[in-house]
Design a protein around this nucleic acid. Structure first.
Length: 273
DNA sequence: GCGACAG
DNA sequence: ATCTTGTCGC
């Protein structure tokens, strides 16, 4: 089966795999930023000269129920001091590439990068210090016995921004199975634990399953995107979880869905072109 | 061959 | 991703 460019899907996937491998060489798996994660004692005494993490971004896409190729991409920036959304922006587009497990980035990263470039230009003071992405980072299939390179890694590298991947479901990789992970988290001997490190059959660490609030039984799946360590990523995620899903991503989800509902004509126009 | 497969 | 109502509880 050939598409309009005369390219078969399988050769397209070959190209994408090559791009993932080449972008992967630029991936940084350690903390690489000048800010630090605030601690609980910070409120009273803020003597430190060091910059602290304040603006955390979140991105998500919502889709039109009638036409799943039409999407609203949303970017929000949350101020950690008060959890207020200090910036949001949306873009309605027709996606040209289908969802193929393992290649989500080629579908969603371009429009998310546009939103990041726009805030950098229009409101640089709100450009996020850290970005949370709905979708995985290292927790992603990418052969050769190494960990993967999901949307959060992809976007982090092309935007040169620290990113964390947040999955609401486990992408089964390296022998990791969602049902077994949940059993570990729910086991009596682990009832006090809210974290399970996702170490696969190969011995690689892909990320962590986290019960992000007291009341949420179902975990979220956290993995490194770019320029951050797993330890730091887990602290940042925990800190932003008022509900199960970290607030920046939750707000991007709610507001992008809301935008589509309140501006149906925008979707119509995009659909016509 | 069969099932699984982020969003 | 999306289709979908109410319901039980803090």
């Amino acid at each position: 089966m050939e598409n309009i460019h005369g390219t078969s899907l399988s050769s397209q996937i070959n190209n994408w795999t090559g791009i993932q491998e080449s972008l992967r060489r630029r991936l940084v798996l350690e903390d690489d930023f000048k800010w630090r994660v605030p601690t609980h004692e910070d409120g009273s005494e803020e003597n430190s000269i060091a910059e602290t993490l304040k603006y955390v971004g979140g991105v998500d896409l919502s889709f039109l129920k009638d036409d799943p190729s039409i999407a609203c991409a949303g970017l929000v920036v949350v101020d950690l001091d008060n959890f207020n959304v200090v910036y949001d922006d949306f873009s309605v587009v027709q996606l040209q590439i289908p969802y193929i497990p393992g290649f989500l980035a080629f579908r969603e990263a371009p429009i998310l990068l546009e939103l990041l470039e726009k805030v950098k230009h229009d409101a640089p003071l709100f450009y996020p210090q850290l970005l949370m992405v709905d979708g995985n980072g290292l927790l992603h299939p990418q052969g050769k016995g190494s960990v993967g390179f999901g949307l959060a890694c992809h976007l982090g590298v092309i935007a040169n921004l620290p990113t964390i991947g947040i999955g609401k479901n486990l992408h089964h990789v390296d022998g990791l199975v969602q049902s077994e992970v949940r059993i570990l988290l729910e086991a009596k001997e682990n009832c006090s634990k809210d974290l399970v490190t996702l170490t696969g059959y190969s011995g690689s660490t892909w990320g962590a399953a986290m019960r992000s609030t007291e009341s949420s039984l179902k975990p979220i799946f956290v993995s490194i995107g770019h320029r951050i360590s797993l330890d730091t990523a887990l602290k940042a995620v925990k800190m932003t979880c008022k509900y199960r899903v970290p607030e920046p991503i939750r707000q991007a989800d709610i507001r992008s869905r809301d935008y589509l509902q309140k501006h149906p004509w925008v979707a119509k126009i995009v659909q016509m072109q």
